[in-house]
Every structure is written in structure tokens, then in C-alpha cells.
């Protein structure tokens, strides 16, 4: 069965979001901004004013640093666009969502169903994952132009807040829904059923490591 394809605005309505199902393929239109640890720390911990009207301009937060450069004349050279792994940003996301009204969190690898249930669902937000990973050239084609780059002097190009105008940018895959279900956990559960058989015949290493046991008094052997 071929997955469904959907075009979605980066300022989606509640109905748009409610209609999304795990595994749907999404293409985005409208403004999207990149924000990762640098932006979160600056906006939330250092309380800097966010230089955009959120969520009216955009409700789509992309965990991304583009392969891009600012030319000496101030214009932009936007190459490939790929996400970075999102689970590292869980500590900032609840406050970020509350502050900015983000409805689409876009990145790599998704979050846990616990994250989805705790603060995605109450905020009416879902997670879209990039594909591959690394369909950077395809996603780059979906960027009509760079509207602005904020905080690049303070944070560097990779951590700056890039504002991208998207035109059928994609593909992305819907990885959470409004019940807090997680696409990756669903897949992991299916795969896990096979793992015991796979490991059959192997035994744990003769010298264990902390992390494989949470008991720090464990002799590790």
C-alpha cells in the first residue's frame, strides 16, 4: 500500500492536524523557522526577544542547520537542508511550544510517546520527521527563498534562526498523532519481537560496562 500524500500549511488549522495519521507523507507550504539548542537557550534561558511573530507567521519549528552561507552582499546561498536528531531538545520544547504556539515540530528521529502525550497533545501539535535521513537536496529544492537569518552573529550559521519560505517542501513523514502515538515506537515494537531469536547463541561480554546495569555496585563481570 502506498502512503497517503498531503500538502499542509506551516500555519495549519486544528482540523488539518487532526486529519493527519501516522505514516502519512507531508509536503509543507509557508514560512518555517529553524530552532535548535542555540535558539532555545537564547530565547528561553537568556530571555532574548524572539525576532518573529509566532505562531501567526509560522507554527513550524525545524530542528535543522542548513548547508548555507551568507554572501558578502548579505544575500543567501542555500544548498541542502537536513534535520538533526530531536530527542536532544526535549528539555526546552514544552516551554518553547507554550511560548510560540508551534504546532509542527520537524526533525530527525522523533520524540518519545511520553513527550507527545505530555506536551504535544495538550498543545495540539504533532511531529513530522524528515526522510532518509538526508534528503537534503530534495528539501533544499522546496525552499523558495531565505526570508531572514536571525542571531547568526551570536550563534554562528549552524545554530542561527533561519526563516525559510517553503513551497511543497518535503517529503516529511507524520511520526506522532493527537493521541500521542509514536510511529517509531510502533516500528520498534514490531522489530523487537525478532531480537531474542537474533541474539540466540551470543552471550554478554565477559567484562560488563556501567550503563548495561544501573547498579553502580555491580562488579561488572
Amino acid at each position: 500500500m502506498k502512503p497517503r500524500e498531503i500538502r499542509l500549511s506551516t500555519t495549519p488549522t486544528a482540523e488539518d492536524i487532526a486529519a493527519l495519521r501516522l505514516g502519512d507523507i507531508v509536503y509543507l507550504d509557508g514560512l518555517m523557522y529553524t530552532a535548535r539548542e542555540g535558539v532555545y537557550m537564547r530565547a528561553l534561558e537568556e530571555k532574548a526577544n524572539i525576532p518573529m511573530e509566532l505562531p501567526s507567521e509560522s507554527a513550524a519549528n525545524f530542528h535543522c542547520s542548513p548547508a548555507a552561507t551568507i554572501r558578502p552582499d548579505g544575500s543567501f546561498n542555500m544548498g541542502a537542508v537536513t534535520a538533526t536528531a530531536s530527542f536532544r531538545f526535549a528539555k526546552w520544547l514544552p516551554e518553547w511550544m507554550a511560548k510560540t504556539g508551534a504546532k509542527l515540530i520537524i526533525g530527525k528521529g522523533g520524540m518519545t510517546s511520553r513527550d507527545y502525550k505530555q506536551y504535544f497533545v495538550p498543545n495540539g501539535a504533532v511531529y513530522l520527521t524528515t526522510v532518509g535521513y538526508g534528503t537534503g537536496a530534495l528539501l533544499g529544492r522546496g525552499v523558495d527563498n531565505v526570508e531572514a537569518v536571525h542571531w547568526h552573529e551570536e550563534l554562528g550559521l549552524a545554530q542561527a534562526m533561519w526563516v525559510l519560505k517553503c513551497n511543497r517542501m518535503g517529503p516529511f513523514i507524520v511520526a506522532s498523532d493527537l493521541e500521542g502515538n509514536c510511529l517509531f515506537e510502533r516500528e520498534n515494537e514490531r522489530i523487537a519481537q525478532n531480537l531474542d531469536r537474533l541474539y540466540e547463541g551470543t552471550k554478554p561480554a565477559v567484562l560488563k560496562r556501567y550503563g548495561e546495569t544501573d547498579d553502580r555496585s555491580d562488579e561488572l563481570i
Binding site: 542547520s65 548547508a67 541542502a80 532518509g132 538526508g134 537536496a137 530534495l138 533544499g140 513523514i173
Partner: peptide, 29 residues
């Protein structure tokens, strides 16, 4: 795998797009 197959197909298209546009394949270079 339905989703895995979709991903591989998208990657193959991505390599073509990168070469056509002379654009990096992936944003994380």
C-alpha cells in the same frame, strides 16, 4: 517494508536532485 521502501525511493531521487542542482546531498555535510 512499506515505509522503508518509501525512504529508499526518496533517497534515490535525492541523489539525482543533488547532482542536477549541484547541491549537497544532505544538509548535514
Amino acid at each position: 517494508g512499506e515505509l522503508s521502501a518509501f525512504v529508499l525511493d526518496a533517497m534515490l531521487k535525492n541523489y539525482e536532485a543533488a547532482k542536477e542542482d549541484r547541491r549537497a546531498m544532505c544538509g548535514d555535510t
